[in-house]
Nucleic acid binder design. Structure first.
Lengths: 184, 184
DNA sequence: ACTATTCTTTAGCGATCGTTCAAATATTAG
DNA sequence: CTAATATTTGAACGATCGCTAAAGAATAGT
């Protein structure tokens, strides 16, 4: 008798590299506008391989979302300076006006299936929870964390609609200032 | 000789009613996901009539955008109380989680043609300009107007991703409070 | 009644959508 | 070398996409 999982051909392409290509396309273009053919081309594979690796376009999108969170979101220890660091990261000059895949997906939400919607909104609430933890012990920690998380969202939207880095930084600076945080 | 514009069959449907139907679909679903067939059905017309009245899906979307601004945006006289009134309007309980067509379109921007992109971002800057006018003479008018306009954007995004009315109102209240405005 | 003009309907265009399937290819165990 | 398993390619599936052309229906001047 033969071993079931050991006797076989292995994947020719790297799954994470393929997911990175998917992240790039979904991030730039959005879920609806991105076609499976585009994904296959960017991944350097054929349709059959695509559906063997991911199961559907939606499932691929869910995996891409996870990959995005894992690769693109800053890993910071909670604390007041983590918030300003977050704002510095999202207002960097090199981000190219793509915004944030999570925020973009939140807007595209009605076109996604329910588990994906839930994950997206949960991730957004996760950012707010992180900010709340960063402000733990301070006055109006919850209220300020909500506003700061909301400001992050708006900065991503405005960045995507072509706002200048300078304007994004002014918004970030004002939000930090009014909530009693330093820009640096 | 016959008069050119007077001798003809007149339109069977109302253009503004058709545009309202388009606004509803584009607002709920987004540009890419909304099909011309859906638009026709919602308008109660056939494809031929659609392309006779609007010229393309993109052109219809542009008209719908204008109609949206005209019908859905509050018409307020500039002043500090106009800002809180704006926030009250966008956090009303009856808005149904559709967000704002302009904000949604800003996120969908890369999938739209250039003139539409420009109009969308110009409208967003228009809100900020209005808020600046509302705060004229106050301290940090520009900086606060930018942050408040950004907060409006984020409230629309969060509303679309399922945030509760209570949370949206807390964010609005905090932004107003920190910029020296009253909620009421 | 006749003609000119514009709208409406209807059917269908070529292209692309997400997805599936069979055959070919590669990999490993016996 | 053969059998077994997994992945690959490449071609298609039916459905839908945005859009158009032709014919019928309505309106107004002659």
């Amino acid at each position: 008798m033969l071993h079931p999982t050991l006797v076989a051909r292995s994947r020719d392409f790297d799954l994470d590299e393929a997911l990175d290509a998917a992240v790039d396309l979904f991030w730039r273009q959005g879920y609806a506008v991105t076609s499976v053919r585009q994904l296959c081309e960017a991944m350097g594979i054929q349709a059959g391989s695509f559906y063997a690796a991911f199961e559907s376009k939606e499932a691929c999108f869910r995996r891409a979302l996870q990959r995005y969170v894992q690769v693109q979101l800053p890993a910071l220890a909670p604390g007041p300076e983590a918030i300003s660091a977050w704002f510095r990261a999202i207002t960097a000059a090199s981000r190219g006006g793509k915004g944030c895949l999570l925020v973009n997906s939140a807007v595209e939400s009605p076109g996604l299936d329910e588990p994906t919607q839930i994950e997206v909104s949960a991730r957004l609430r996760g950012l707010e929870a992180f900010f709340t933890a960063c402000l733990h012990g301070r006055e109006s920690a919850k209220a300020n964390a909500e506003l700061l998380a909301a400001t992050v969202v708006s900065i991503h939207v405005l960045a995507r609609s072509g706002a200048s880095t300078a304007k994004l930084r002014r918004i970030a600076a004002r939000a930090l200032e009014l909530t009693g945080l330093d820009v640096r």
